Amino acid sequence: MSQKYALALHGGAGPKAGEDYSVTEAHLAELAKEGEALLKAGETSLDVVKIMVANLESSGLYVAGKGAAPNIAGQFELDASIMEGHTRRSGSVSAIQDVVSPVGVAKAVLEKSPCVLITAEGANKFAHDEGFEKISNPKDYYVLPIGVSQADIEQEDMMHGTVGAVALDIYGNLAAATSTGGVFGKTEGRVGDTPLIGIGTWADDDIAISCTGTGEFFIRAGGALTTANGYKLAGDTLQEALWRMLDEVKRLGGDGGLIAVNRKGEIAMAFNSDGLKRAAISDNMELVSTTFTPCR
């Protein structure tokens, strides 16, 4: 066991230039400190990324969990995934409705189901059977996150928001988790990159990644696993691996960002949108929490 640890969080790559995100930056900073304390106390990376993302979901500050936007039919369909690197255990849900913590359900899929991904009514039933807290009145529960207006929700230009966390624990193990309410004005049943293991989320023995952005383009660019392969097989630095995939997303017409941590405790974050709400801390890195500061 070592004392090396690292944690990075993101609150989505959809912030609009000119908006004030000091509240979300403060929230991410506070949460990162809590996550650091958990890692130093010996919590596993898997448990920490779940706790971090569940807190992001419940805050109502981001387009995930309580801050999710409805689809064109007025339904709230949410996606989430989680993965443990050294075992490759993973779980995800897509188009799940009326649960407080989609990432909690994803972790239960990882721990209690032979499946990796459960969707729609099957995910709803699984969450009910496992006793997850249900939202009785969705229209009263969900709120508009900071920087999001009703006009944003009604438009159909793929504006987006996602939350995620990646961590290295003191046992040398990596994990990642991601959760989203999806793009604004989405079609019923639309599923993006977030619940797809290897696209929106990935963790193995060497790297953990969480993505945020226009999911269709991340899927077409290969997402998190393309990033991991760039780092592990092509000889990219951690930062170069993030930009390899992100530049392909841009070439295809999309935008977004991603965060990653490797087994050395190095952290990298990148975005090609206006900004990326993010925070990071490690045993040899002071806390950083920012939105618009360039990564390249």
Rank of each mutant, 00 (worst) to 15 (best):
E130Q: 15
A208V: 05
G223F: 01
F132P: 10
P195I: 06
F218V: 00
Y141R: 12
V163G: 11
S149P: 01
T214V: 11
D236L: 06
H160T: 14
T180E: 09
E188F: 10
A208F: 08
D157T: 11
G192S: 07
G164S: 12
Y142S: 07
Y141P: 11
S210H: 07
D193G: 01
T178E: 07
A208T: 05
T226C: 04
A203E: 05
E130F: 14
K186W: 09
I209K: 10
D236T: 06
A167R: 04
D236A: 03
G147I: 05
E156F: 10
A234C: 13
I199H: 00
G198K: 02
V163K: 11
G230Q: 05
L168Y: 04
D169L: 06
I199L: 06
G172A: 11
T178K: 06
A177Q: 09
G230L: 06
G213N: 02
R220N: 01
A165R: 04
P195H: 03
G185P: 09
A224M: 01
V148Q: 03
H160R: 05
T201Q: 08
D236Y: 13
F217Q: 03
K186Y: 12
V163I: 12
G235Y: 10
E133K: 13
G213L: 04
I153K: 08
E216A: 01
T226L: 02
R190K: 14
G222T: 04
Q155Y: 00
D204R: 10
